[in-house]
Design a protein around this nucleic acid. Sequence first.
RNA 1: GGGCCCGUAGCUCAGUUGGAUAGAGCAGCAGCCUUCUAAGCUGCUGGUCGCAGGUUCGAAUCCUGCCGGGCUCGCCA
Length: 612
Amino acid sequence: MTRPRRCDRPGALLPSGFRMFAVAMNLFETFSARISRALTQLADRGDIPAGLSFARVVVEPTRDPAHGDLAINAAMVLAKEAGTNPRALAALLVEELARDPDVAKAEIAGPGFINLTLQPAVFTGILKSAIEAGLDHGRGALRPDPKINVEYVSANPTGPMHVGHGRGAVFGDALSSLLAFAGHAVSREYYINDAGAQVDVLARSAFLRYREALGEEIGAIPEGLYPGDYLKSVGESLAKTYGESLRGKPESEWLVAVRAAAIDGMMAMIRDDLAALGVVHDVFFSERSLQAVDGNIDAVRETIEDLRSRDLIYEGRLPPPKGQKDEDWEDREQTLFRATLFGDDVDRPLLKSDGSYTYFANDIAYHRSKFVRGFAEMIDVWGADHGGYVKRMAAAVKAVTHGEGSLDVKLCQLVRLLRNGEQVRMSKRSGDFVTLREVIDEVGRDAVRFMMIFRKNDATLDFDLAKVVEQSKDNPVFYVQYAHARCASIFRQAREAFPGIDLSPTVLAQADLSRLTDEAEIGIIKMIAAYPRMIDAAASAHEPHRVAFFVHELASAFHSLWNKGKDSPQLRFVNQTDRESTVARLAFVHAVRSVLASGLAVVGVAAPEEMR
RNA sequence: GGGCCCGUAGCUCAGUUGGAUAGAGCAGCAGCCUUCUAAGCUGCUGGUCGCAGGUUCGAAUCCUGCCGGGCUCGCCA
């Protein structure tokens, strides 16, 4: 991804706002730097002590437009250390900032806020660069930092994905796209849980279907095996490959082959579901590959030995959990990882009683592998039911990376599936639960993706199958996509009104943007200017839902402006009698459209040209 | 019993990572809308931010303790 560089453009003839922001389009970063400079000057002059930390100084948008465009907390944050009071310090700073040609007004407010009102040219300058940048507006410059590893989905290969998996999938996918857009290198990873007892159960279930495929009457699927129909095709393909040769043989002779075939079948199905959702991964990492099978080196053993050599593993006993039925609690000595040294509540076992590795042991090795492969920053996306597992994994990452690695676990809460407000039951018992695929097929990928991300990850989510296909204001998916389509429609109308008109971004960027003076227009331009900051904040907080909310708000503001044109024809985007004004408005619409498309792209939702 | 997450308008939820008078959408109320850009528009009402303390210039946000709901608690993954 290369980013257009415009630094070499001659700036002398342009308004100062543009000159500045064509280089650094994040308005807030730019002013943050200017304020630091102003403070440094105050320090150089001896007005404030030298060496103060400006780390807590924040430049942010004002909540109330009456307060201008930017609010600065510097005076309040630094007053105490500077040995003065906030308003006095603010006065010094205001004097300095007022000299900035981009600042129309600098004033002190409340307890010591400094409110800046910027010259209109600043915003038209940003709008202009947004028009030129198009889909790259808001994209962060590529950072030199090491790649971030994002692990998501990681559903067990024992059946089709359900709706809960879908939420994690969309979340992880959108988060990865967001990080990439913000300038990070990202690796998207899926951990295949193909090593535990579950996949043996899967193999037995598949073997039954194999016998069925050979014509045997298998009756009801026994308790404890996977009953779903989805294993039938695995059985059939086993029958095709092996014929009668496995039939009647002891499990030990067919388990490995059948298990491998079943896992392959399940993973093919899962990949297919992910593709239907538009969710992508760079790496599919097999848990089994960490163990000493198929000629692999035993990475789990290696990991355990590494930890043991640092005295982080010991043989000991664990107290039984309190307030829990403990009839079958067997007090025994086991191999424990000193998780408590790294912030966990108890030490955690690494070996099962039969001597095989616990899931946790494998997972430690897996995260160690991530680190060894060059990822110091790791993000895991899990279902909320794994919340109790977070501390031990974070502890393990600290241990295994010698404190150099970090792990952020994002837990996605449950999804309640509704239809017209009535809960759709998802009974897993008979195996006929509602699958993710069924939902995608019913309402479409875009609706699923947008709704899954239109909520904070740690809040439970209601997903109404009826609502998300409504073509109304109440359906956020439609509402946002429609705003984009409406932008495209405006361009079509303009071309009809002015045959042969050149509406390329290059031409639009030269439009007289100072014509855009309506309150609603200015408000939207400021939203466009705030987009890069939102992207930055959402990326560093690992919160992709903010992008969905932003895009929804922008759509709302745009629809509202559009409607204003009903009562005030002079606000209409296409004005047959005024070519100049039309070009300026279309430049504006182009920027709105780009930001909508950009935000939708991060979320992974299509930006349609029309929605008829 | 321990741990983690959540608690914001009647409902569903945001809240820019500690900022100013806490926002939006539904619902409710009041108007407009016999189309001049494509699935209406505008305005109003509505709050002890679960409760009580604490930290500081400043708390829905951070800390502590309660209350309520969810998830979870060795040999599942």
